[in-house]
Design a protein around this nucleic acid. Structure first.
Lengths: 236, 236
DNA sequence: AAGTGGTCTAGACCACTTG
DNA sequence: AAGTGGTCTAGACCACTTG
């Protein structure tokens, strides 16, 4: 892995904050100071500060400077994938049932999301998650077969795709879309619900360093599952 | 409002997508093409493409090009409240219609959420948000009458509750619960949907420094609204 | 081989905040 | 007045994908 210059500067800043050297509201070096210190152009130093600001780690004010944010915005969205832990945390029993595990030819939509070509091959898994033996989520997942060549050799009754993927290609990024939908009839059967029952559907794309690892479509009956989150806004 | 050059290019691209000229998966002009067309440097054209990619509007692949994304991220969780800005960002027209604005006696559930006693008084507003005159969200909001005594004097056809509340009691924290539900019949009427239509419902509690400011119940037709988000894990 | 996006430079001018 | 962040330029080299 080749490190970028702005990545090195980001890590430097994160380390200082992590170590407590720069506490909340502390002023961090200016673009010019970082540029000189790391012997890079101002634009490169700027990019490091900019990305940490977008991540909610820093707060910037024109004319005044760049500061460590007061609260770090946290999101439980990152943990959406980890339904096994979530169920366990409620003191309930989690079980996963592998419905499908195979290779597929990807269509246009999935190809773009996975960052591969339409018509190329990928792996596909379909897993039903149960909480105390009640179905709470159907996980349909397309996996990049180049990044995870051993995916089809797993037994997803024993380990969740999320756990397995985390072990071979640690998550670095994720994006989600959350929608309310009516599930198609085959999904209704798996989830043991009526067709008119609203479902929460999360489409999630996950990245590792090497690129897009997988695209998951998570469908849950509206009356058995909800998402929650708590966010603290960085304030001055 | 001073427009930036990259802002003009972003708007140009959004308009093309909006108009259907560039459908999903369509290739958009390259950095060099945009730079020439708008007579700007490549870095400026790049920034427009980059920001739209971060917003989930575009997808980029090195060597291949930039494409219109299949899933459009519509809203990040932090900005759930700010539906007016969100609609404007899509280049659409936002309008709000005040349906109710009154005092109420709170029941047990709302009392707990608002941090007051059951049977005490609070303010209540009901506002319908429209995007290009199509209803996209019904906002039911209970407001702490001690922290915001002037709430009933506002005209929420002119200013959104979020804008008003932000001006008098800046947001410091928020929590959400997201669910898929079937809307009760009166909500269906306001939203102009059939009763069997699944809806995305967000219950949001917001804090200012002084305490809980308000509890909002945001209900949107599943086919007209979705939530999106992108998270980066801190990495080098 | 040509085109694309990813990173980076060394400058510039500006609006803004601070002492 | 000096420093800061915000925007922008006109170049450069690279890794990667496509024909």
């Amino acid at each position: 892995m080749v490190l970028t210059k702005f990545g090195i500067i980001k890590q430097f800043i994160l380390n200082k904050i992590e170590a407590g050297t720069w506490p909340q509201n502390a002023k961090v070096p200016s673009e010019n100071e970082l540029a000189e210190q790391f012997n890079v152009s101002r634009m490169t130093a700027r990019r490091a500060l900019q990305e940490l600001t977008e991540q909610g780690v820093l707060v910037r004010t024109q004319g005044a400077g760049t500061f460590v944010a007061t609260f770090k915005s946290q999101s439980s969205l990152l943990e959406i994938n980890n339904i096994a832990d979530e169920v366990s945390a409620r003191g309930h029993h989690h079980r996963a049932k592998q419905i499908k595990l195979c290779g597929v030819t990807v269509d246009d939509e999935i190809a773009i999301l996975l960052g591969c070509h339409s018509g190329s091959d990928a792996f596909y898994s379909e897993i039903l998650h149960l909480e105390n033996d009640v179905p709470i989520q159907l996980e349909q997942r397309y996996v990049n077969n180049k990044l995870v060549p051993t995916y089809l050799e797993q037994d997803f009754n024993e380990i969740t795709p999320h756990e397995f993927l985390s072990s071979v290609a640690p998550l670095t990024e994720a994006s989600h879309e959350i929608e309310a939908v009516l599930a198609p009839i085959d999904l209704c059967k798996h989830l043991d619900i009526e067709m008119h029952q609203p479902c929460l559907q999360v489409k999630r794309r996950t990245w590792a360093r090497q690129g897009v690892v997988s695209v998951a479509i998570l469908t849950s009956p509206g009356n058995r599952y909800r998402l929650g989150g708590h966010i603290k806004v960085s304030t001055a």
